[in-house]
């Protein structure tokens, strides 16, 4: 009997403590791994007395699949811009109207009314960047500003090149390399793309995500990569250089949104507004090393970011960027077929 009483007391204490946590407020964010500044989260927690929990995912498809099943328990998510129309049309996002929030004025003009979320009805910018190449110039000292690093690998780099296995990124790169346009359904181009990829693959050593660590350790001497990741690699090893492929490259952005089945909508709205504050966005960029689309946030970033070649696109390449967008399902199916054939 005594034991039962103790158990009951313990259970009551437990309930009470979770009750308290609810009173203080919580916020569950579902985001890419290694992408959220801990200092910035601490600041938000202190300012609004909200306990933030962050859970990681590694790809847009993982996040989409998990949230679509329902009952994920998350309040916020950070999809890439080419996935946002899917999230909206599938009815997964809550229309929070960040465009009417107090800090909206801070969003840089080019990001105020993007094609993927007209009028910013759902999302707030988190980070934006480029898919390009990264090369260890100790191993290869030629031109890095070309997809040729990956698809026509120079002799010095043969057997040392990695490719980040984001299907759309890799195939888009090969499409641009062959003079096509992103999401093309043109079979002549796609046939060239398939041949380019199949011919290039024997020169690759791996198809992996962990480039920051493996470029640093010398397991890879070159890779396809994102510019913020390249920046972090250069900070560890100054010989590592980011390349803007002259054949064209994809500009992407990841954007913060609130889920329709969020339990903590008010806290999530506070966080949306919080992220549009230049100081907070600057803090976040100091961590993930990407640009963030909030005007004035540069003032709150470390000095080494202001002239970083990875963040400031050189004038000669500025026109080579193409925006990331959702490919139609029939093109996606062709991409998948080429991808499977590449991996056999």
């Amino acid at each position: 009997m005594k034991r039962i009483k103790t158990t009951l007391a313990l259970a009551a204490a437990l309930l009470a403590s979770t009750g308290l946590a609810h009173a203080e407020g919580v916020l569950n964010i579902y985001n890419w791994g290694n992408y959220t500044s801990p200092e910035m989260i601490k600041k938000f927690e202190d300012q609004y007395k909200v306990k933030v929990t962050i859970t990681d995912y590694d790809s847009n498809d993982t996040a989409l699949a998990k949230v679509r099943q329902g009952g994920s328990g998350f309040d916020m998510v950070v999809p890439s811009q080419n996935y946002i129309p899917i999230w909206i049309s599938e009815g997964l996002l809550l229309e929070t109207d960040p465009g009417k929030m107090e800090n909206f004025k801070n969003i840089a003009d080019v990001w105020k009314d993007p094609e993927f979320d007209p009028g910013r009805k759902y999302t707030v910018p988190w980070a934006m960047g480029i898919v390009g190449t990264v090369v260890n110039t100790d191993v290869y000292n030629g031109d890095v500003n070309t997809w040729g690093i990956i698809f026509d690998t120079p002799a010095e780099l043969k057997g040392k090149v990695n490719v980040v296995p984001e299907m759309n990124d890799v195939i888009d790169a090969a499409v641009l390399y062959n003079g096509g346009t992103k999401c093309t359904g043109d079979l002549t181009i796609l046939k060239k793309v398939r041949d380019t990829l199949v011919k290039a693959k024997p020169d690759w050593v791996a198809m992996e995500y962990g480039t920051i660590e493996k470029m640093g350790s010398g397991d890879f001497s070159a890779s396809s990569d994102w510019n913020g990741s390249a920046f972090r690699q250069r900070l560890a090893n100054p010989k590592i250089k980011f390349g803007y492929p002259k054949e064209g490259f994809v500009n992407w952005s990841d954007n913060l949104a609130v889920l329709k089945d969020a339990a903590n909508v008010e806290n999530a709205k506070l966080f949306l507004n919080f992220m549009m504050d230049p100081e907070n966005a600057g803090m976040n960029s100091s961590f993930h090393r990407y640009a963030n689309g909030i005007a004035g946030s540069e003032a709150f970033m470390p000095a080494d970011m202001k002239d970083a070649p990875e963040i400031n696109i050189p004038a000669e390449f500025a026109s080579k960027g193409v925006p990331s967008q959702t490919c139609p399902p029939e093109v996606q199916e062709l991409y998948t077929k080429i991808w499977t054939e590449l991996q056999k």
Binding site: A65, M167, N168, K201, W204, V205, A206, W339, Q343
Partner: peptide, 15 residues
Amino acid sequence: KNLMLGNLIELQFGQ
């Protein structure tokens, strides 16, 4: 770089 069956199945449910 080279798939095994488990990785091929995972690919179909993901990307």
